[in-house]
Design a protein around this nucleic acid. Structure first.
Lengths: 138, 138
DNA sequence: CTCTATGCAAATAATTTGCAAGCAC
DNA sequence: GTGCTTGCAAATTATTTGCATAGAG
């Protein structure tokens, strides 16, 4: 894992345990947002078995440090992706096979000010996902 | 409920039961997306008690007919809003009190084509929610 | 050593499913 | 009547919490 993540953990008073390192490795090796259960399964395959509860606790902790973002595709479960050190982006998911692809764009940059004027909220985040059909499922 | 919804139900071979009418009434009277549990609670208050299971089944059915849209604010539950007959729009939710406000805008109209070229997906939907702090919670 | 982190068991919470009885058309 | 609907019970699935022990710094 990049040293900057280690640094952030240290700054947060977090320890580099074996389970935590393995969980971060799985997150960083995934090419798309994955679920807690998927992380758990990969840990077991990699003989780095850690409890599902430990996975959930680390996911919550990493979100708290701003290193990880949670993404909901209306599947009944959340997916997680390392955001630290990556460019802000969004995703599209296939309604057929569930495949997820990165979209390296964000059309919302200029919109925040308008929404803040309109609503009196201070806007500090957004969630944007696209849905459709991939070439194989179409 | 507007006749167009009745028509859609009829066209789908659905019956106008007492529970269904009451659920639709609650959905239509809400000024923001509500959860299944909230619908259930309002039904009981209105002495139109219907089972929570019936609420879930009707929500699924209405989504299937395209009359209702499900919205996820990462709260661990879904919220639902009648979309039939309403202009396409999005929402912002306060991270403090959970209040939800309509945003009568959508910045994504012109983006679909670009995403389709880029990914080879056919895009047929998107989810977009904003988060921030309302004047009271800020 | 001290304090964070983990595993296991159990609790919550949201949503779904099976089945017999009820009601709209 | 016939078939869609409902209610109730129970199952599933995702996520969280309590507590005693293990391990990092």
């Amino acid at each position: 894992m990049p040293n900057s993540i280690r640094d952030s953990l240290k700054a947060g008073g977090k320890k580099l345990t074996r389970a935590r390192i393995a969980i971060l490795a799985v997150l960083e090796q995934s090419h798309f947002p994955i679920t807690a259960a998927e992380i758990h399964a990969r840990l077991i395959k990699a003989r780095a078995g850690a409890d599902l509860v430990t996975v959930y606790r680390n996911l919550a902790m990493l979100q708290g440090l701003g290193l990880l973002s949670a993404i909901g595709f209306h599947e009944g479960q959340m997916r997680y992706e390392v955001c630290h050190g990556r460019a802000h982006h969004h995703h599209i998911q296939c309604r057929g096979c569930g495949k997820i692809i990165d979209l390296m764009l964000c059309p919302l940059q200029n919109l925040t000010k308008r929404i803040e004027e309109q609503t009196q909220f201070s806007v500090d985040g957004h969630a944007l996902e696209f849905f459709g059909w991939c070439p194989q499922c179409r």
